[in-house]
């Protein structure tokens, strides 16, 4: 049985003349926690966005879905980068989480009992029920991050696509996020995230796609994040080489 929920076949993406991602061939295993790792400008976000269908592929193809009975047409849940959100926007926590139902009910139908139940459940699961009526700008950084995870939960996605979920998040919250992802994984959901912190990818993720415009390597984390591969991706500017060397011994 084929259990690769995302399959990238020779994927190339251009912005005008600039080549952002070049002939990437890799798979994302269903139920894995896969990190896209690479230096700035390596095409991490581009690969995520191409997966969501926002970029036309110059060459190649991305096939979505595996042989699992529920995964012929898996649903995406997308969590944007924190920096992309206008936190002054007149929106409450609940109203943002309700947006998660938009894909299912469309622009016209009103919220049914099921939808309200899903929104309430997502708010509770993320510990936001008490502050559901607050404006999003009045939350702490961790709460803000959880609002968007709750929206993704309310979407009911099979594949969680996260763009730099750990960006600007303090250490304690990183731990919470990771355990949240692991819980989703146990529910047979797939986590696919752009991560620029090499250490974090090594500690928390089961699989890694190592990218520097071209694919360097992909597969289980310990097989991919070897010193040779990291040097190939980062050149001489490896951020944490000291931390990497002992692994060779």
């Amino acid at each position: 049985m084929n259990l690769e929920i995302l399959r990238y076949e020779n994927v190339t993406v251009h912005y005008g003349r600039l080549c952002a991602v070049e002939s990437v061939t890799a798979d994302v295993h269903c139920g894995s926690m896969t990190a896209i790792v690479g230096p700035n400008g390596a095409g991490k976000s581009t690969l995520l966005r191409a997966t969501l269908g926002w970029h036309r592929l110059t060459t190649g193809s991305i096939s979505i879905g595996d042989d699992h009975v529920h995964h012929h047409h898996p649903r995406f849940a997308y969590v944007p980068q924190r920096a992309q959100i206008d936190w002054d926007f007149p929106a409450t926590v609940r109203s943002v989480v309700e947006q998660g139902r938009f894909g299912a009910i469309g622009g016209f139908r009103s919220f049914g009992d099921d939808d309200h139940a899903l929104v309430d459940a997502a708010l509770r699961e993320m510990g936001l029920a008490e502050i559901a009526e607050r404006q999003i700008g009045q939350l702490s950084g961790g709460q803000q991050q959880r609002v968007f995870l709750a929206r993704a939960l309310a979407q009911g996605g099979d594949i969680f696509i996260l763009d730099e979920p750990f960006e600007g998040v303090d250490a304690g919250l990183v731990r919470n996020l990771v355990s949240q992802f692991q819980q989703w994984r146990r529910q047979h959901r797939t986590i696919f995230a752009a991560v620029h912190d090499l250490n974090l990818a090594r500690r928390a993720f089961s699989h890694v796609v190592l990218l520097n415009r071209r694919l360097i390597a992909w597969g289980p984390t310990e097989e991919v994040l070897t010193p040779e591969n990291i040097r190939a991706a980062y050149g001489n500017s490896v951020p944490i080489l000291d931390d990497v060397e002992p692994a060779r011994a």
């Binding site: 997308y78 959100i85 938009f102």
Partner: peptide, 14 residues
């Protein structure tokens, strides 16, 4: 509302 608040998410809903 959704396109104004979070254009990326709006596109992610297809």
């Amino acid at each position: 509302l959704l396109e104004t608040f979070d254009a990326g998410f709006y596109r992610a809903t297809g």
